[in-house]
């Protein structure tokens, strides 16, 4: 029994080590960044949206990755009528704060202003689709921590079951708990896996140019297949030199655009 406790202590230590690893990065915010953001907010409130956007962008370029920064930058672009960059930054903010209703509301409003209407025909059914939809409510890190914690808890329960001499009803309860925790762990792993897979294989981007011709190959000499407008969200399938191969939702239609016309989320 004593050994089980020791094991639990080791687990908790490892988990908190990982957290501290993260928290260590948080401690960076003492170099006037909040002051810069305050100034940018004030500029925004005075209607100087272009200057405010510069302020937020500066902080992002300096390595700050706060969801509120991206959200405010998105607002500043929206107010300047740049729907493409507004959506781009709302999406980036959403990735960092997936349960923020403000981000969702503004994203929806910005999407309503885009010119291209695309139907997402891909994977509307199926187990993995549901998992993917559920996991959209969490950040990658939250999924990672969740899966790992579930796995630790499961291992701990198994060790307790093997090494202790409990019997009867308690043993049965423990066995049920292990079955449940196994399911939770599998779910966590599936969620983490599907998210990592999606980010690795299907990176997304937003058209930031007001209008761009999508060609059949990476160069101007190819046939223009169709045109897209600012704010359209697409998948990025390939990059070759200064050209990006994009796919429309559904994955069947694809074409090349100059790299400066699109930004990855």
């Amino acid at each position: 029994m004593k050994k089980t406790f020791a094991l639990a202590a080791v687990f908790i230590a490892i988990l908190s080590l990982l957290m501290v690893n993260q928290a260590g990065l948080l401690a960076k915010s003492s170099d006037g960044a909040t002051e810069t953001m305050k100034t940018a907010n004030r500029l925004y409130e005075n209607g100087q949206f272009a200057l405010a956007a510069q302020g937020y962008q500066q902080l992002i370029d300096r390595g700050y990755t706060d969801s509120s920064l991206y959200y405010n930058l998105g607002n500043a672009h929206f107010k300047q009528g740049d729907i493409g960059r507004a959506i781009l930054n709302y999406r980036r903010a959403e990735k960092l704060g997936p349960r923020d209703s403000d981000i969702q509301a503004n994203l929806q409003l910005a999407r309503a202003e885009t010119l291209d209407r695309l139907e997402d025909t891909a994977e509307t059914e199926g187990f993995f689709h549901h998992i993917a939809r559920f996991t959209r409510k969490f950040t990658l890190n939250e999924l990672a921590i969740f899966a790992l914690t579930a796995w630790f808890a499961l291992a701990l329960l198994i060790i307790v079951l093997i090494n202790s001499r409990i019997s009867g009803a308690w043993r049965e309860t423990l066995q049920y708990a292990i079955a449940l925790m196994t399911m939770i762990t599998l779910l966590g792993v599936a969620g983490l896996g599907s998210r990592m897979y999606a980010e690795k294989t299907r990176p997304e981007g937003v058209i930031v140019a007001p209008e761009v011709s999508v060609t059949s190959g990476p160069g101007n000499q190819y046939v223009t297949e169709f045109t897209l407008h600012s704010g359209t969200e697409v998948g990025i399938a390939d990059k070759r030199g200064n050209w990006v191969l994009l796919t429309l939702p559904g994955g069947e239609v694809e074409g090349w655009v100059p790299a400066e016309a699109i930004e990855g989320i």
Binding site: L18, K28, S29, L59, L69, F78, A105, N141
Partner: peptide
């Protein structure tokens, strides 16, 4: 209209790499 700005948080997050990019995370598994 779009919803208004977010106020300045106490700490600006500056994390660049996700946890899954750290080998320590996978060792923990």
């Amino acid at each position: 209209d779009i919803r208004h700005l977010k106020p300045v948080p106490d700490h600006l997050n500056a994390q660049t790499r996700p946890l899954t990019a750290s080998p320590l995370y996978w060792m923990a598994w």
